[in-house]
Write a protein that binds this DNA or RNA. Structure first.
Lengths: 120, 120
DNA sequence: GCTATATATCAACATATCTTGAGAGGTTGA
DNA sequence: TCAACCTCTCAAGATATGTTGATATATAGC
């Protein structure tokens, strides 16, 4: 994850429609969702508007697409999301571990059953 | 961290000058840096341009300022950065722990001596 | 109070981004 | 092949964002 790629990622996430699409697709998992289903879930965006944002997200590497019959299915690209997160944390971890530690602690999320630091 | 605050955070980080300022201030730690020093480190941005971006970052809650004599010292707000990271991770952790796990593993950063998953 | 220093603010312009509406490209099943 | 469906592309206009140069505000030392 270099600076340019991080910039593209943050820019992609800085727009309401796109941020909602990403969160929707993260929840949807690897199976993904068809463009039309995404549009419905968003409350009915025009197809051109939706396509504009989907293309933007795909170019930023946050989502990818595959065709299935008439449908085009979009899904989240988790490594890119992880890369953005890592990019944000790199510097503080390098230079100031004592600062980074509480951040890292807050991130011990509910992936492990019984822990719920993020959602409480 | 609600959606609006996350959007503001990502928008703030989606601009080259601002991203560099944030990374600079993260490295600088709690002591922070004077506006002029930041400008120099960036290779000489005009004062109005610098001020524009510093104000933008401060309104997004990513940095804060304090006056010391003639200088205005800016420093990173680590909880906001952590909040952005948490916001990105929340959904996958909730719905798909098996997907989130590798992401979380990649984040076991060098805060603990001996581990260097992020920087290798 | 005056001057130098450090930074913020304002207005104007340039550029980038988003939305809309019309139309085109593939895909399916009859 | 035809009609229905799903999605993309293009052009135009609206809005938001970033840059520049000039000016204003605040502090420090003489």
């Amino acid at each position: 994850m270099d600076e340019q790629r991080a910039l593209a990622g943050f820019a992609a996430l800085s727009q309401e429609t796109r941020l909602r699409i990403v969160r929707l697709l993260v929840k949807a998992g690897p199976e993904g969702m068809a463009a039309g289903a995404i549009g419905e879930a968003l409350g009915g965006a025009s197809t051109s508007r939706l396509s504009f944002h989907l293309t933007h997200l795909e170019q930023a590497g946050l989502i990818r697409s595959r065709r299935e019959g008439r449908f085009i299915i979009y899904s989240a690209v988790f490594p890119t999301l992880a890369g953005l997160i890592a990019f944000l944390m790199r510097d503080c971890c390098d230079g100031h571990p004592e600062i980074c530690a509480p951040v890292a602690a807050a991130l011990s999320c509910s992936c492990e059953p019984g822990k719920d630091a993020l959602h409480g």
